[in-house]
Amino acid sequence: MSHVVQIQTQVRDVAAARAGCRRLGLEEPVVETVKLFSGSVTGLAVRLRDWRYPVVFDTATGETKFDNYQGRWGKQQRLDEFLQAYAVEATKLQARRKSYSVSEQSLSDGSIKVTVQVGGAS
């Protein structure tokens, strides 16, 4: 039986965040205190391509903090790309931890279809 799932992503898995960064060719994320325009925040800092300030994730709460000045200091598309890469990598890591097989397929609209095989063929 097939299921389509839509996910609102919260970054909580550091290993998946690292894998997402590798997937996109970004620097390894680090837990640190960083200065955004409006103040300092502490968490897992991800430096997106062409962004002035890093995006900071609180992996305990799932909260995301960033300042891209309504797109002037960083395009939302870059954050969306990272969140997609993170979601795919987190899904793959969780599935493999349970010994499930996983495959992915890039679709023409830019989305990624991830298939998790839980048991035998149906």
Rank of each mutant, 00 (worst) to 15 (best):
L36K: 05
L83G: 11
R78K: 13
V30S: 13
Y100E: 06
A60G: 04
G25A: 13
S108Y: 03
S122C: 07
L107W: 00
K75S: 09
Y69M: 15
L107Q: 12
Q10I: 00
Q84D: 03
Q6L: 08
L26I: 11
D80I: 01
I7Q: 05
L93M: 09
Q117D: 05
L24E: 06
L107I: 10
L107H: 02
K113I: 00
S38P: 00
L107G: 07
T91F: 06
V46R: 14
L44R: 01
S108L: 11
T42H: 06
R49F: 03
D13W: 07
V118C: 02
L79N: 09
G74A: 01
Q6S: 07
E104A: 04
A95T: 14
L48Q: 08
P29I: 12
C21K: 01
Q6D: 13
T61A: 05
R47F: 10
I7D: 04
R12D: 00
R96K: 14
E28F: 04
K113M: 04
V5D: 03
Q94R: 06
V41H: 01
A16N: 08
Y100K: 10
D58C: 08
R96A: 14
T115Q: 07
Q117K: 12
S101H: 12
S122D: 13
A15C: 00
Q8F: 13
S2W: 05
G62Y: 00
D67G: 05
S38L: 08
Q8L: 12
Y53C: 01
K65E: 15
R72A: 12
A87N: 14
V46I: 15
N68E: 04
Q6E: 14
F66N: 03
E28P: 03
